[in-house]
Computed example of a mutant assay.
Amino acid sequence: MNGHPNIRGRGTASNDAGRFERFATVAADDGWDRDEDLPPLRTEVRDEVARSLITYNRSPDLPFDRSINPYRGCEHGCVYCFARPTHAYLGLSAGLDFETRLIARPNAPEILRHELCAKAYRVAPIALGTNTDPYQPIEKSRLITRSCLEVLNSFNHPAAIVTKGALIERDLEILSDMARRGLVRVGVSLTTLDADLSRRMEPRAPSPARRLHMIRNLTQAGIPVRVMTSPVVPGLTDHELEQLLEAGRDAGADAASWIMLRLPREVSQLWQEWLATHEPARAEKVMSQLREMHGGREYDPRWGHRMRGEGEYAQMIAKRFKLAVKRLGLDTHSEPLRCDLFTKPPQAGDQLSLF
């Protein structure tokens, strides 16, 4: 699909073969069909029978040790998404495949219930939205994220959700019920307040104004929300940092976080292609500042470094963030999610209690 002309609403224009593939395919004009006759590039969804769901990690720079992902790939199409390279494990491209060839895991709620019932399971907050957005558009019909939330709610299990998707408002009754027991927090990613820039970087994600409306609706329902100014893009969105934090605070957020733009593996090339197309005048500045933060490289995957970078520029962003959250009252420590309420509800086939 490289060179496919009908890619309006997509984050990238390329679809290079995954890094594990031996062969690559390239679109070529054979003289028979005209480009404008090609149909629009549609989203394709396939089902996967999950054998396990909870993924554990030992990363010292992450605030959680386990996560679940109801979907693989993400239709939001954010060109900078650090999760794009994971599509290579499916034999697919990190480019257009990541946002058009999606994998749904319809048995995820049943697998989650089974894993939570295991005798060896020890409760700790589960993160949703760590790899792809749990509230991307296909969730509207698939309802997999909602079903997983219902399972977590029935177990009194704590959960932390990260999303850009306005579809989360559909589940306000479940989330507010969990929030009353201290079982849930939501992080809403806010990259820029510039609607045009957002549409080009995050073509199928809700607009910045819509995300602020999401924060307002969530907090009014009693759900604590963290505004995530992520990613901060050097030379492109960094000047908005204080405005983003203030807008999130005004919408009701009670906490904040930030992450620098990350360009692992295939994402670097996709991002540079996007810059050349959409922001050619700023491309050199953006990339030079990224390289300055990573010792001359475009990305450094070291723990403790990959999220923030190092050097004068990275330190300046960190100081600006620290001063802004203090001024806005977003530097208060959030109450930890409760783990003491966890209980395994009766399951089909359980032996009944005598009393």
Rank of each mutant, 00 (worst) to 15 (best):
M1H: 04
M1G: 02
G3N: 09
I7D: 01
R8I: 04
R10C: 14
R10V: 02
N15G: 05
A17F: 09
G18K: 06
V26P: 00
A27M: 15
A28Q: 12
R34Y: 07
E36S: 12
E36Y: 13
D37S: 15
E48F: 14
Y56G: 00
Y56N: 02
N57G: 05
S59T: 07
D61A: 10
F64W: 15
H76A: 03
C81V: 10
T86Y: 15
Y89T: 03
Y89W: 12
L90D: 15
G91E: 07
L92G: 00
S93Y: 09
A94T: 08
G95F: 10
E99A: 11
N107T: 10
A118R: 15
A118I: 00
A118G: 04
A127S: 14
A127R: 14
L128I: 15
T130P: 00
N131K: 06
D133C: 11
P134L: 12
P137C: 09
P137I: 11
E139F: 13
S141Q: 14
S141V: 12
R142P: 01
T145E: 10
R146G: 05
C148W: 05
S154T: 11
F155I: 04
N156T: 01
H157Q: 09
H157R: 08
A160G: 08
I161R: 08
A166S: 14
L167K: 04
L167M: 12
L167S: 05
L167G: 07
R170N: 13
L175C: 07
R180G: 02
R180S: 15
L190T: 02
D196L: 09
E202K: 08
R204G: 04
A205E: 05
A209E: 14
R210F: 00
R210E: 15
H213Y: 11
G222M: 10
P224C: 06
V225G: 09
V225A: 12
T229R: 01
T229L: 10
P231M: 09
G235K: 01
L245D: 03
D250H: 11
L263E: 04
P264H: 08
R265C: 07
E266L: 00
V267P: 03
V267Y: 01
E273G: 14
T277P: 00
P280W: 04
A281L: 13
R282S: 02
E292Y: 01
H294K: 02
G295H: 08
R297K: 13
E298K: 00
D300G: 06
P301W: 11
W303C: 07
R308P: 00
Q315Y: 00
R320W: 03
R320Y: 05
F321D: 02
F321E: 02
A324H: 07
L330V: 09
H333M: 06
E335Q: 14
P336W: 12
K344S: 06
P345F: 05
P345I: 05
P346D: 07
Q347P: 00
Q351E: 14
L354N: 05
